[in-house]
Nucleic acid binder design. Structure first.
Lengths: 337, 337
DNA sequence: TTGTATGCGTTATCAA
DNA sequence: TTGATAACGCATACAA
């Protein structure tokens, strides 16, 4: 398995390495037809394939970008990654996807690993736990785009959705269907979008003059959700509607309801913040707050490649907010009388 | 953003490049404590980070492997990828995931791209459309593991499941519940596992002396499934049970049933070949033929890293068959009287 | 214990 | 139009 190099090709074709290099880079404007043919033949005969590692070393670019997602188990993450990959593909770039599991230590490790591998830029779902590192990249003008979470301490282009407004709209929808006992369940309020979603929930209740009850707001680890839900539904004034703060919370909710023989929407209405692949054909169909993940990923890739290729200055605003769509389906459509 | 190199560190610390290199590779058995300290300090002060590209060029290894999956939209693919990544992670390797979309042209392109990037090995869901390329890798002894599909023309380690037996078992289960009109729907029979599943279906019917009907066996593009299902359920002897050959087919089946007001399992029993994330809490819960995807991915990674690190010879048998588990749930449990 | 010299496979600069 | 030659940043054999 000894690799054949450019030098081998050059020797076989009876020309110099530089000529072969020219040929490979399609810079054969003034190259003798006969020379080209010799090289072509030698490449074919030896089965030569260029070594991108060597090229990258010389050119100081790898044509690769890194993606560090918060949690690969969220379909939101995979959908965004897919969009980024598609965009990269169209621009002769490649993407390496890493999973930080919402852990700042892993995040740091991956940022360092990817930069050591000389990726040309980074798309990051920031945990928020590596401020100095973010700042360092900012001041080095290393190409970076943040997705899903705003980090106010740094000035880095960021793609987010209108978490607060979208949740507000969903809660308003439930209220208009007659619900007043509306609970919300999210993972711990450690990151920006979860806080914003919770704020949207509170704002809606406020605006509709419905008192906020602490016991209706659950923010806890996925593993503890089922037990918290038991507590919630043991209350004398149990909720008639439930907002799941993301897809993983929603799965826990569904497991809980199933186990306890609670029917949707008859016993409780459900709305979930996230795209659920089977929402449109589950029984019942599920009302979702759909994030435009594909468009967001595409935009992130676009912004990153812009930085990589044109070294552009940051515009005045570096926050790109995408609107969500409330997809009203059966799980929340039954009016409460 | 000018990179700081080992030479910079050496100069700043007042030592030579090689000493710094020794230090970085933890070969400081006989290194002066004072020298170490100087180097440590210089690295810290300059913010030096090693360049893995340069290191890879020299060492002729990148500590990266490539994964080329058939179709990233299958949860099977993502689950396997995740297992491979986890295993790599434990062994200080990294994985690049590419999506061939079951297209031999894309597959070839990715194989060439990944090898040009000098990945140390490849895990491949082979399309079957690049035999010469597979053979070439085999004879070059380039580390490769195949997953999901057996390619009989080459002698490459391959991880598969017992497609035929598992499908047989699922169909037998339906028969024992009283079904005799059992249909099966799969994507086109272009690849090994789909053919095997279909064979398992036929074998079961044969063994139970149930005549095989051509019109009960649908193998077509995802986009055309809904219309084929319409045809199927317009038959005078419409089926009472349906086997979905994979997750994407299953989604089409569910969409179709929903649109046509057909209930599971009352109007039709359903079994699906693939892990469905929500199978255990959907309404009804879904009977699945569960593939041990995580274990398969782990094994694939293990076999690959073995080849990479130990250049081992192929054992007598290069086929690793994993058994599936029939998870009987509500969608198929109602006995037909 | 540390330094010098050389090479990894490519591209870029400049001559010829 | 093509060819020497010097980088790119690191690792390593060998010398000091």
């Amino acid at each position: 398995m000894k690799r054949v190099t450019m030098a081998d090709v050059a020797k076989a074709a009876g020309v110099s390495k530089s000529t072969v290099s020219q040929f490979l880079n399609k810079r054969y404007e003034h190259m003798g037809e006969e020379t080209k043919e010799k090289i072509r033949e030698a490449i074919e005969r030896l089965g030569y394939h260029p070594n991108y590692i060597a090229r990258s070393l010389k050119q100081k670019r790898t044509a690769m970008i890194g993606i560090i997602v918060a949690n690969i188990m969220h379909s939101f993450s995979t959908e965004i990654s897919r969009a980024i990959e598609d965009f990269c593909h169209e621009h002769d770039m490649h993407a390496i996807v890493c999973n930080a599991d919402d852990d700042p230590v892993k995040e740091r490790k991956y940022i360092e690993m990817l930069r050591a591998r000389q990726v040309d830029g980074l798309i990051l779902f920031p945990t928020g736990g590596n401020l100095e590192l973010y700042k360092q990249m900012e001041q080095e003008r290393y190409p970076v785009v943040f997705v899903d979470r705003k980090i106010s301490e740094v000035n880095i282009r960021t793609i987010v959705v209108n978490n607060k407004e979208a949740t507000y709209q969903a809660v308003a929808h439930l209220i208009e269907k007659g619900h007043r006992d509306i609970a919300i369940i999210t993972p711990p309020l450690t990151i920006y979008p979860r806080i914003e979603r919770m704020n949207g929930y509170k704002q809606a209740l406020n605006d509709y003059r419905i008192p906020i009850k602490q016991e209706y707001m659950i923010s806890t680890e996925i593993q503890r959700m089922i037990s918290e839900l038991s507590r919630l539904f043991a209350l004398p004034d149990k909720p008639t509607a439930l907002v799941a703060g993301n897809d993983l919370s929603f799965f826990e909710v569904m497991k809980f309801l199933k186990e306890n023989g609670l029917r949707v929407p008859n016993n409780v209405a459900v709305v979930v913040f996230d795209n659920i692949p089977f929402a449109s054909f589950s029984e019942p169909t599920m009302t979702t707050i759909a994030q435009p993940a594909y468009a967001m990923g595409k935009k992130a890739a676009e912004l990153l490649l812009q930085q990589i290729h044109h070294h552009e200055e940051l515009p005045d605003s570096n926050l790109y907010t995408f609107p969500c769509t409330l997809m009203i389906r059966e799980s929340s459509s039954r009016a409460l009388i």
